[in-house]
């Protein structure tokens, strides 16, 4: 069988065909709201973030200190054993300079880019990374392997969320001269 011998289905429309009502369509917005329970391990993680601390969970069989913390070790398939505090510093494992929002719209010229990064947290086992954003940094000077430190919200403003850390900033060098314009964050 050759594809060229068949009349293929799929009738292409343009957005304007829909906007102008050239074909019948139905618009609908689902009204769904969620309240996701934090659970045991993440509940404590968020509580400690509110205290300005990063906490991990250790499995005494494989010895891994895991972040985000979890009540069971997915490798040893057993309950984890103890809580371990980590430092609020780490290393950039990889990063991106993001020019678009989730809906594919562009971040307007002059507004800060989103600077997502995977950060390996000091005190957790090697390779244990979390997703966060970088800030107070010149985007062109971000490097993989760069040491970074958490920048916390003021104690009274923390609410037990990953965003209690506003962003991670470079420990030294690569810092922005002017602190007026912040990159990263939301």
């Amino acid at each position: 069988m050759e594809l060229g011998k068949f009349k293929l289905g799929g009738t292409q429309l343009k957005q304007s065909d829909i906007d102008r009502g050239k074909v019948l369509t139905l618009a609908q917005t689902p009204d769904l709201e969620y309240a996701w329970d934090d659970g045991v391990a993440i509940g404590r993680y968020l509580e400690e973030l509110k205290n300005g601390k990063i906490i991990a969970r250790k499995c005494n069989k494989c010895g891994r200190i895991m972040i985000p913390p979890r009540m069971f070790c997915e490798l040893c398939w057993r309950a984890t054993d103890e809580w371990v505090y980590c430092k609020d510093t780490g290393t950039v494992n990889t990063y991106s300079l993001c020019h678009v929002n989730w809906d594919a719209s562009r971040i307007p010229e002059g507004e800060p880019l989103h600077l997502p990064a995977l950060i390996h947290i000091d005190g957790a086992s090697p390779g244990m990374g979390i997703l966060h954003v970088l800030g107070e940094v010149d985007p062109d000077r971000i490097k993989i392997g760069m040491k970074v430190k958490a920048v916390w919200k003021k104690p009274g403003e923390r609410e037990g969320s990953i965003t209690d850390i506003m962003h991670f900033k470079p420990l030294r060098a690569a810092r922005k001269k002017s602190k007026k314009k912040k990159s990263g964050g939301r």
């Binding site: 829909i18 369509t25 618009a27 689902p30 709201e33 309240a35 329970d37 934090d38 509940g43």
Partner: peptide, 17 residues
């Protein structure tokens, strides 16, 4: 009563007939 995180899925749909 438990700690929770709120969210929505920010989409809408246009179905062709």
């Amino acid at each position: 009563d438990l700690s929770y995180f709120e969210g929505k899925i920010p989409v809408n749909y246009v179905y062709t007939y």
